[in-house]
Design a protein around this nucleic acid. Sequence first.
RNA 1: GGGAGUUUGCCCGAGUGGUUAAAGGGGGCGGACUGUAAAUCCGCUGGCUACGCCUACAUUGGUUCGAAUCCAAUAGCUCCCA
Length: 430
Amino acid sequence: MQHNDLIEELRWRGLIHQITDEPGLQKLLASGPQTVYIGFDPTATSLHVGSLMQLMMLRRFQLAGHRPIALVGGATGMIGDPTGKSEERNLLSAEQLQQNVAGIESQMRKFLSFEGENAAILLNNFDWMKGFSYLEFLRDVGKNFPVGTMLGKESVRARLGSEAGLSYTEFSYMLLQAYDFVYLAKQQGCLIQAGGSDQWGNITAGIDLSRRMLGKQVFGLTAPLLTTGDGKKMGKTERGAVWLDRQQTSPYAFYQYWINVSDEDVMRCIAYLTEIDRQEYDSLADATQSDPGRRAAQKRLAEWMTVFVHGDDGIRSALAASKILFGGEIEDVDDAGLNEIFADVPSQELPRDLLAGEGLWVVEALQQAGLAKSGGEARRSIKEGGVYLNNERLTDMDRRLGESDLASETVMVLRKGKRNYALLRFKTDG
RNA sequence: GGGAGUUUGCCCGAGUGGUUAAAGGGGGCGGACUGUAAAUCCGCUGGCUACGCCUACAUUGGUUCGAAUCCAAUAGCUCCCA
C-alpha cells in the first residue's frame, strides 16, 4: 500500500472522526514513513475488544509503511483518565499496574510486527514520568496550560457539572498525556497521535503543548468509538468485557460474540476491525441485505476476528464447540474433547459411586449441576421439556442416571433450555 | 413533638373474615416459531422423593371454627400540622 492511500483507506472504513489538520497530515504522510502513537490504559491484565480498534489503527499505519508506537500508560494509569467516566476512579496499586502492563505488552506482540524497517515499538510512559519531580513538572509543563482552556474541555466540564466532582489528580491527567506526546515527538520523532474520539481533548492538549514547548506542529486523528446502533459500547456482554486473553474469554465465547452482532452493526464492525477489503465488504453487505438469515457477514466477521486473535486452532475449537453447543449430537467424544468444547461451561465433580446401583436421580443431578435451585424447579424443567442429557431431551421425571449415561469416560452433559449447559464429572476417589 | 395514611410473592399491583400458594402486569425460566436475531404465541414461576404435606401477605401477640383480610404493640416508608 502506498503511504498516501492510508487516509483514504481509513476514510472508507469510517475510521476517521476528526483530524486536526488534514491537508497538513496528508502532506506529512506522503513525505515518507512517519511515526504514530496511541496510548493504552493498563486497567486490566488483558486488552479487550474496545482496545482492538486502536490496535488495528496502529496496524493499519504499520501496514502502510509507518512506524507504530504502542504506549502503555504505566504512569497515566496511576492517575486515571477522567474522560467519559462519571465518577472518580479508584487508583490502581503499583503492583497491579505492573502486572497489567506486562500482560498487555505480551498481547500487543501478536498484532503488531516488532521486526523489520518499521518495527513497532512499545513504550511505557512510566519510564520517563517516574523521574520527573513535581516542581520540574509544574515549571516545564504546567506553566504551558491555561486553566481556562482546561476547564473548557468536555471531559472536565462533564465532571464539574456532576455530583461526583473531579479531583485535582484527575484534573491533571491531561497534562500527563499531553506531555507524552511532546516527549515522543522529541525523542522518537513521533508527530502523530491517534485514538478514539473520546481522546480528542487529550490529543489536542498535546498538540498545544508541543507548539508551546517545542515550537513544533504535530497532528491528531481520532476514530469513532465502537458502538452499537443504539449507542451502547460494543465489546460488553452481560458477563462483562470481551477480552483478547483466551483465559478470560475463550475462543468459543469470542467467536460467539461476533456471530451475534446485529445486522445493523455487523458491517461497521467489519470495516472498523478487520482487514477485509472493499470488494468483499461490498459483497457481504449485499448478502446481508438480500439474505439476512444466512448471516454471511456475521460468520465472516467472527471467523476473521477469531483467527486474528486466537489463530487457527482457536477458530477450530470455536467452530467445534459452536456445533455441539447448538444442539449437535454428542457422540464419540472423550474427556479431553469435551473439556475443550465445554471450556466455558460450569462443572461439578461427584463421586462415581453415585452411578452404581439405583443410580443418580435426575432431579438431584440437575441441582448438583447448578441448573436448578430446588427439586421443584428441576421437576418443572423436566415437565416443560427443557432438560437434555447429552443433548437428548429427557422427559422421565423418575429417570436415574447410571454408567451408561456417561458421554465420555467420566463426563455427563446436562442442559436446561437452549444454552444452559453444565457438566457432571464422576471421579473415582483416589 | 401532634395527626393521617401505608407496608402483599424477584418488582409493580389487586385482594378488607372462608377452594387465596394469593387476580393482573413486568421480569425470569421453559417450549413453539426463527437467522444461535427481533417480534409473536403457549406454559411455568415458595419448599418438600410430592394426587398429599409444610411455610408464606413487615414483625410480635390477640379476636375467631377459620385471617393477607378484624384488634393491639413494634418497626420501615409517605404526607399534613408545629
